[in-house]
Design a protein around this nucleic acid. Structure first.
Lengths: 208, 208
DNA sequence: GTCTATAAATCGATAGAC
DNA sequence: GTCTATCGATTTATAGAC
């Protein structure tokens, strides 16, 4: 336990404190309200001090996005316990929608605002399956791969493409509900979700 | 042709000039870059002069949004010439996607940014079918009403709900493509659109 | 290591000369 | 009717005292 170690721990602790405050501000007042001054005020430090631990406001936003995506992924994962692929698909969708509506600012940050911050989830490891984005998408790809292997798909579409098809549909619900606060679309989220997923599932599967 | 008339025309002409410049700025640099100073510079007037014709920056943004939605609606309307409801649905979707990707900043302004400016399209006339938003949605509602009347729907879902279901799915494609510039989803727009719409259509209609 | 103070650049909106 | 000039409030980021 050297002096350097202690310094490193303290540094990490300060960074965590900054990020926690930043997270609170984004959740309560939106991403645009995330300013260095507000963060400084929240942790009771001078604005300049933060620059000793973070390069810029963007670095903080970047970290928030990364953490937010991890959380998003964690919210989806429990659905993997479900064996039946179609039922698992429904559960992932439900969890996706729930996360989006319960954490609108995080969702907006990842999927609706400046893609600069979302790069961490998708581009950085574009080829690696380990990026949070590819992991999340992978949950859906697996489902459609299983369905294809069991010869239950109506056509020979790519599992990756089908996974993205499901994703964009659910994203459409969440993003419009977040932006227009329920005034459009007027149909309740649950009904909209039911309609869309059931139609997509029915439309993808072989007639039986 | 009184003196008052001429003054009115000149006033309207100035407003148009401002809006045209504002439109250009939003298209080229994004909505956040729309500042009174930039508009003034573009039309070669002093910043203060604009305030003689517009109450505030918000009024300009509001007008931009209204005009943008009109344009959006006009882009959709030619599809109404198609008699077959399912084929008409496909064409509306294609036109929707095309408009969104060709006018990303307008689309973002209406559907993805501050809903304050989009209120004109939806809330203001919420009860009237004459709002641009309700007109656009109406194109889809009509389709599902026709399909229901012809007993071609698989279930007894509301035509309004089905219309919104189609809308959110296509919106999901456009908004993710705009935000993540094609890096996610990776599937090409056309393929994604085909997959989603065909699955939704197939999922909605009676088996035959 | 943290502070105060401030630079430098924005912004929206307004007052008053011409 | 348009201008110049500016207010007042933002912001990010930095310099230098302690």
């Amino acid at each position: 336990m050297t002096k350097v170690d202690r310094r490193e721990r303290e540094k990490a602790a300060f960074r965590e404190e900054v990020l926690a405050a930043a997270r609170r501000i984004v959740l309560e007042q939106g991403f645009d309200a995330l300013t260095m001054r507000k963060i400084a005020e929240a942790i009771e430090y001078a604005p300049g001090t933060i620059y000793l631990y973070f390069e810029s406001r963007d670095e903080i936003a970047f970290e928030l996005c990364r953490a937010g995506f991890e959380e998003f992924l964690d919210a989806l994962k429990p659905a993997t316990l479900i064996a039946d692929p179609v039922e698992r698909l429904r559960e992932i969708g439900r969890r996706y929608v729930r996360f989006g509506l319960e954490h609108p600012e995080t969702y907006r940050l990842i999927f609706m605002d400046d893609p600069k911050f979302a790069e961490v989830a998708f581009h950085e490891y574009e080829k690696s399956a380990d990026s949070p984005g590819m992991q999340a998408l992978g949950l859906l790809v697996t489902i459609f791969s299983e369905l294809r292997d069991r010869r239950r798909l109506a056509n020979d579409a790519d599992p990756e493409a089908l996974a993205e098809m499901m994703w964009v549909a659910v994203h459409g619900i969440v993003s419009l509900k977040i932006t227009h606060a329920g005034r459009f679309p007027q149909t309740a989220t649950e009904e909209l979700f039911e309609l869309a997923t059931e139609a997509l599932i029915r439309g993808c599967l072989k007639r039986y």
